[in-house]
Each structure stands twice: as structure tokens, then as C-alpha cells.
Amino acid sequence: MNKRLNVRKTHKMFINGKFVRSESERTYNWNSKQIKTSINICQASRKDFRDAIISAKNAFPSWKSKTAYNRAQIIYRCAEIIEGRSPQLIEELALQGISQSKAVTEVKQTIDTLVYFAGWADKYNQIFSTVNPVSSPYFSFSVLEPTGIIVIIPSEKSGLLGILGGIIPTIIGGNTCVTLMPQDYPLCAASLAESLHSSDVPPGVVNIITGFQSELLEHFATHMEVNGLIYFGENIDTITAIEQNASQNLKRVSICHDKDWMYNDSLHPYSILRTQETKTTWHPIGY
């Protein structure tokens, strides 16, 4: 009996709604601990990052202007798609050394997190906005608006939930983002991107790149088009470097920990606030 030769997946990055290789044409060799395959993962260059930022910047005005209801629909759709693709994601997680049962749980939790935050899209502004009872004849109100272009450096410990745990609260609030996959857990990038792509997440809203944090970190933190940066981790040197560089254009830096993406602790709207600005508007009342 002829054994069928399986078709391997090419692991591409996701920039501006397109599946691309690094412009540098570099890859790094990722070795599975489970099977004796090695996989070539794109090694993003600073130019890839730049392109991703351009696409995030271009996507921002229309994504932020979408109705909250619309954003909720898209994120919920994303949950539906991932539900359908669960086996593939479980397989990819397992390939990266996660036990089958843990992988199943992580995928389920990821889907539930998507559903949870889809529900927040049209509510967080109701919780955190205010009508300000000013002592003058003015109507004054404060609402949340997205910070803008956000770079996300997810936890090194998770290949799926940790990544979406950073992305979802960010984009549900109208921001667009560029996310770097963890160097050791890059395999879900393409499947994740495919899921986003087929859920009508507009091109550029989420950009996913793979590569080395050490190479890209400085550019993440210095790029003047970036308005905010979320880092999941404990490395004090990394944090210091990020904050120092971020001061060049006063990026909002959020330093996050495991509890900020792990399922049990992450289900709250405060993670949305990381990438929100308060805008206060005044208008006279009278005739």
C-alpha cells in the first residue's frame, strides 16, 4: 500500500491581510520536540515590522469608526471559525509540546475568551464613560477612544491563548495591532491568521509576524507611529529597554503578567482600558 505523502504547511506571516514571507527572505529553523521534523519559520526584519505598522496605521481609521456592534460581530465570528478549526489548532499546539488535554483546554478557552470579549465591544464604554456634572451651563461627557497603533509582545509561554489574550482586548476597543509570535511557539500563527482572515477582520487590523524578539524589540519600542506597546513577561532588561525607548514618543507601555492572559484571571474589561484614551467633550447648553 502506498503511503500518501502529506502536504506540509508553509508558515507565513500575516501583514495587511496577506500571507507573506519576510522581505529579507530569512527563516529560522524551528524543531519540534515531539516529531523529528524541523520547520522553517519566517524571521521578520525591521522592514517587515515597518510594513506591518503601515498596514495597522492604514486600517486604524475605519476599524475605530466601525460600530461597536460590528466589531462584536466580527470577533464572535472569529470564535465560530476557530471552533471549526479546533482540531488543527490542537494539533499545532501538541506539535509544540503541549499535552493533548492541555491543548484542548487552551483552544476551548481561547474560543470562550473571544466570545467573552465580543460581548464587551458595545458595553465597556457604557461602564467607563461618564457624563460630567460640571458646575456651569455645559454638557460635558467623557468617552473612551482607542489609543491607536499597538505592538503586542505576547507571553513566551503560550502559543495561542497568550497571543489572543493580548490581541482581543486591544482590537475589540478599536485599536489595530502588530503581534510578534513567541519564538518557541510560532506554529499557530498561520492558522490564527487564517481564522482572522475568514472572520472579516479587515486587513491590517491584526498583523502577525514571527521572528526574534531580541532583533525587533528596539524597533517596536522606538517606531514613532506606534502609540502603545503591551509586553507580557518578567524580563527586567527587556522592560527597561522598552520603557526607555518608548519615552521617545510617549508610547503607553503596559507590562503584563501571566494572569493577564490566563483564562481564569483575564476575563474582565480592565484589559481593554490598557489601550483606551479618555476624551472629554464640552458643549454649551442654552438658547
Binding site: 460640571v134 455645559y138 472629554t280 467633550t281
Partner: peptide
Amino acid sequence: RAGVIWANTFNKFDPSAPF
């Protein structure tokens, strides 16, 4: 893209209005 917008007025402040 700014934190305080005054429409048909300017430079109004109040302790209850975030700035």
C-alpha cells in the same frame, strides 16, 4: 485625536471633567 475637545467654547475646566 485629543483628550479634551471644546465645542463652541474653550478652556473650560471642572473637577468632575477628566483632563
